[in-house]
Structure formats: structure tokens, C-alpha cells
């Protein structure tokens, strides 16, 4: 029960931070952080895949509503949620029988970094290609993917670091 409440708090908090502040960041005209995917990264490994996808859909759609992107964020998040079990498997090679929440503490800093990097790249690639929906400005889209992913990754690592310090 307590876990559910914390998750709801994370959900609301991350969506609010995303739509009120982060969406308006656009460093050098290319980099926008999408920190809200952090929740999809840290939810415990053994969560039902379908539940995770529904959660991702709800989260993406709430962000979509605030940036007039009509399903783009939702599509990218569902894709990330769908691929997540596979990501965890390749980034945390040791066989854990017990359930755990992916994070710096449980995976170690490098494994978590790899995991977050792959997740961010998958999400951002889907997001920016769906958003521009053309190959005309493919160079610019790649630039946005790379630099936004860097910014998101930095924030994800920072938030996870601070969370574990407490």
C-alpha cells in the first residue's frame, strides 16, 4: 500500500516537473530533457509487463496532453516499457532470484548507467522520430536525440544518486 502511494507520488511529481519546467528547456536549440521516464526505469523488476505498459501509456499521455503532441510520448513510453525486461536482462547479467528495483545501489553505477543509457536512447529515438515524422531533417533529429539523451541521462543519474544518499 505504501509502495503504491510512493509510486503515485513519483508519477504526479515527475509529470509536473516535466510539463512545468523541463519541457521548456531547449539548450542550444536541440537538447530537451525527459526526466519523467525515470519512474519507468526504477519500478521493481518483477512488475507485470502489462501493468508496466499501461502505466507507461498513462504517463506518456499525461505529458502529451501538456505539450500538444497527441500520443507521441505515450507511444515512446509504451515501447520502452515493452523492451524493459530485456534491457534489465542484458544490463544486470548476474542472476537475481529476488525482486529488486533497478538503481545505482542494486545494479552498481556502471550497470545502471548502461541500462539508463539504452533506455533513454530507445525512448528518445522513438519520441523524436514520431514527433518530426519525416526524414527531411534527419541530421537535426539525430542531433536532438543525442544531446537530449545526454541531458536526460545526466538528470536520471543525478536524481538516482541523490535518492540513494538519503
Amino acid at each position: 500500500m505504501e509502495k503504491l502511494l510512493t509510486r503515485i507520488a513519483w508519477f504526479v511529481g515527475l509529470v509536473l516537473v516535466q510539463v512545468l519546467f523541463l519541457n521548456h528547456i531547449c539548450w542550444f536549440g536541440v537538447a530537451t530533457p525527459f526526466l519523467y521516464i525515470y519512474l519507468l526505469l526504477i519500478i521493481d523488476r518483477d512488475i507485470d509487463r502489462n501493468v508496466l505498459m499501461l502505466l507507461a501509456f498513462a504517463m506518456g499521455l499525461s505529458v502529451d496532453v501538456f505539450c500538444n503532441t497527441f500520443g507521441v510520448n505515450a507511444a515512446a513510453c509504451v515501447l520502452l516499457a515493452f523492451l524493459r525486461p530485456w534491457l534489465i536482462r542484458i544490463c544486470a547479467p548476474r542472476d537475481e532470484f529476488e525482486n529488486f528495483e533497478p538503481g545505482i545501489q542494486t545494479l552498481g553505477i556502471w550497470s545502471f548507467f548502461r541500462y539508463a543509457l539504452l533506455a533513454t536512447l530507445i525512448h528518445h529515438t522513438a519520441l523524436f522520430f514520431l514527433e518530426s515524422f519525416s526524414v527531411r531533417h534527419i541530421g537535426f533529429v539525430f542531433l536532438r536525440i543525442v544531446f537530449s539523451a545526454l541531458l536526460t541521462l545526466m538528470m536520471v543519474m543525478a536524481v538516482d544518486f541523490v535518492r540513494n544518499r538519503r
Binding site: 502489462n50 505498459m53 499501461l54 501509456f57 506518456g60 502529451d64 500520443g71 509504451v78 515501447l79
Partner: peptide, 21 residues
């Protein structure tokens, strides 16, 4: 294989939103 179905259905909903708004 339920997760495949859920995945495809959710993505279809997203694309319908994207193209019908």
C-alpha cells in the same frame, strides 16, 4: 503472449491519436 497484444493495442491507440487529432 498477452504482453504482445497489450503492446500492439497500446501503440495502435497512440498512432490513432497522432493521426486523428
Amino acid at each position: 503472449h498477452l504482453h504482445w497484444l497489450v503492446f500492439i493495442v497500446l501503440e495502435i491507440i497512440c498512432f490513432v491519436l497522432l493521426f486523428s487529432y
